[in-house]
Every structure is written in C-alpha cells, then in structure tokens.
Design a protein around this nucleic acid. Structure first.
Lengths: 210, 210
DNA sequence: ACCCAGAATGAATGATCATTCATTCTCACG
DNA sequence: CGTGAGAATGAATGATCATTCATTCTGGGT
C-alpha cells in the first residue's frame, strides 16, 4: 500500500527579482509573528513555500536577507511619507498636513505586524551599525522634506518663533512615539485617538492651518 | 616547569539577592553591547566574572533572566518619573514639569546603553506577550500620574480645550520618540536640542507655565 | 579546629540553526 | 522534440548555545 499521496507541489522557476521579493515578504511575516530574534531560515523559507537552500541562493547569508528586508521596509514607509509631502495634487498646505497625518497613522502603516517589524529592527540598531545606517539615511531624507513643508506653512501662516527643523524633529518623534504606544499599549490608545493627538500637536503649532 | 600562574580568582559566596542583581546588571551590559538577539548566557556570566552554571542556579532559565532584567529596567525608569511627579519638594507645578523633562532627557536616562536596552525589549514586544505585559503595566502607572499632573496644571492655568489624558499620551509619545531619535540619529539631535523640543511642546500647551 | 549545607563551578550533553552542495527538475531555445 | 543552463531542492554538516549535574569549595555554626 502506498503512502497517502501528498499533492506533490510542482517545482516552479521564476525570475530572481520575484523570488527575492517573495523571500523578503516571508521574512516580514515571520518577524512580525515570532520576532527578529527567533526568526529562522527554515521558518522564512517554509513561509514562502520553498526549500531551505533557496535563501542561500538569492541572499548569500541570513544577515544579508535581514538587511535587505530592513531596506525594503524602511523604503516603503519613508517613501510613502515623502511622496505625500512632495505631492502636487494637494497644493493646499493644510490638506497636505492632514494627508501626511492620515498616512502616518492610517490603516496601512499602523497594522500591528508592520509596526512589529519596524520596532524589531529599531531594537537592534543600538548593536548593529548597519541597521542604524539604513534607518538613519531614510530618516534624514524624510526629516529634510518635513522641514521644507513646515517652513512653507510657517511662511504662509506668518507664525513667529518657530524653528521648522526643530518642529519637524518633534513631530516625527511624536509619530514614532504614537506608533510605539499603539504597539505596546493598544488598550489605552485607539488609532482614532492617536490621530487626534497628532492633529492637536499640529494645531497648537499652526493654529491658522488646522 | 609549571604553567604561568593565572591569578586564581578565589571563589566567593554571596547572598542570593546580590548575585541576582549582579547577573541582571551583566545582562544589561551585554544587551547594550551586543543586542538582545545575540546575547548568550556565556557572555552574561563572563561579564559578571562568574561561571556558566550560576545563571541556572539563580534564574531557572535564560527566559527568566531576560524577563527579570526587563522588570528591573522598566521599574527604574518609570519609578524615577513617578517619584518626580509625586515629589513634594517642588510644589510649584512649573518646576515639577521642568524637573520631569530634565529627568526624562537628562544624562542618566539618555545614556546610549540604557536606551539600547530599552528599545531592544520594545522590539520584541510584538512577539512576546510577557514583555508587553511588563512594559504596559508600568506605562499605565506613569500615564495615570502624568495625567493627574497635567490636570492640575490645566486647572491652575485655566487652560480650556485640553484633555489631560490625551495630552499625557502625546507628551509621553514625544519623549519616547525623542529617545528613539537620540539612539538612531544622534548626529541630527543633541540632548540639549531634545530638551528644547520637549519644552516647546509643553510651552505650546501650557503657555502660562513654561 | 572541624564540619557540612548549600553556593559555585565548568565539562558534557543534546537541541537548534545557518550554511553547503550533490542531485533533481524546468523551461527557453534551437 | 530534445537539451543544457541554471533554478530549486533538502539531507548532511558543523557551529553555537542553553541547560544539566557531578564535583569542588566556602564560611557560618559548633
């Protein structure tokens, strides 16, 4: 008697770029579920529905895979912000501020598994200079863009006594802190409320705009 | 010929509480230097100048040691805050706000290795419910205290249109975010500047006090 | 001075994991 | 339809690590 026929998954050959993407997404899923510390190559490749060896084929080492995954996540988040800040559709500065806030605290970004991945890497930044370099490069780019936006708002509103650079750092810190609060103490803070808190921050700085 | 005499460290017997403390501090040092993921029991016990077996003697497992270490770190930080907020010396509310800010962004708390440990654990919160419970318990306590302080300030200043609970969450988020910025992009933000940003936040909310 | 409860040690064990590579399989191309 | 370049596989390997426990050592009690 033969063993019960396992539905024999047929091997599929795909372009390199596609496999890399698939592995990066599996990595994100595993980090969100099990944490950066206990994510193994077996988990990642199983999650992707592939064999163990595949990881080595496309990314030389685990370290490489983790690095590329961070690059992907960082780019996704920061590019999203920058696109909104540079956006031409919302020429109105008030609308642009609001759109930014809604992106930063909206459904897409504040999904628990996305924030988990984000902070998992932040947690290793203190010990891994490579991660710090990747994150800080994107952070700098977003901070510059935010400073420009705030400078425009300050000019338009005739606000005095506000340094756009400092306000940008403060606003970015507030948003990061709200993400952390949503992750750590979700019971105490709804996304709705987080948005209101962000909006209040902007309103106290730019009362004529918000 | 005998081997070069290693200075033969004499075995020392100490009370349990003292050894536990010693191991927790060694754990903190290792996490700060190598990260939570790659900290091993050998590292920790070597850092403490003791043998490997000692860890199992005082903490049943590695998981226990890490949990107790988080408890220690969380308590240290949050108790420091709460003590200031409840402090009787500074009966003046303005002074109390300032003292709090100086503690939160001062030399003691913002040391790189302390923030590293803090965020290392935050990074695992998404995957380890135990960590979340420990951190969120302390967070809640500090948030309640901060809300009371802000409520007093609001009453004294006759500020309208401010919800003390929401402002407390916002302020706490800002401070967390500033810690993150100090850790990730220290080049872009001095502690001096972080304090100014925190102070500006309070000033915009409580203009008569700051 | 002696003893022994239990604190401390560290070599040994077994589990887990990243990485390798001989082999199998696919499919674009002639 | 046949073929070979190279994509994909997964059992095997060796390294690392948490945990164990037989043994050694210490110091308070007598």
């Amino acid at each position: 008697m033969k063993a019960a026929a396992t539905p024999q998954k047929r091997r599929k050959i795909l372009p390199k770029a596609q496999r890399r993407q698939q592995l990066i997404e599996a990595t994100i899923a595993c980090i969100a579920r099990y944490g950066l510390a206990s994510t193994t190559m077996h988990m990642v490749t199983r999650e992707a529905g592939l064999s163990v060896g595949i990881a080595n084929l496309h990314f030389k080492t685990k370290e490489n895979l983790l690095r590329e995954t961070l690059r992907y996540v960082a780019e996704e988040y920061h590019k999203g912000q920058i696109d909104i800040m540079r956006g031409r559709e919302a020429d109105n500065l008030s609308n642009r501020l609001t759109a930014l806030l809604h992106f930063q605290l909206g459904r897409g970004v504040t999904q628990r598994h996305k924030m988990s991945v984000w902070f998992a890497y932040y947690g290793e930044v203190g010990a891994r200079p490579v991660y710090q370099k990747i994150v800080s490069a994107w952070d700098r780019a977003a901070a510059r863009e935010l400073e420009l936006l705030f400078a425009s708002v300050i000019r338009e509103g005739g606000y005095t006594d506000i340094d756009p650079g400092e306000l940008a750092i403060g606003y970015a810190a507030l948003i990061d802190g709200l993400h952390l609060a949503l992750l750590v103490t979700p019971r105490e803070l709804t996304k709705q409320n987080a948005k209101k808190i962000g909006r209040d921050f902007l309103r106290r700085a730019f009362p004529n705009h918000i």
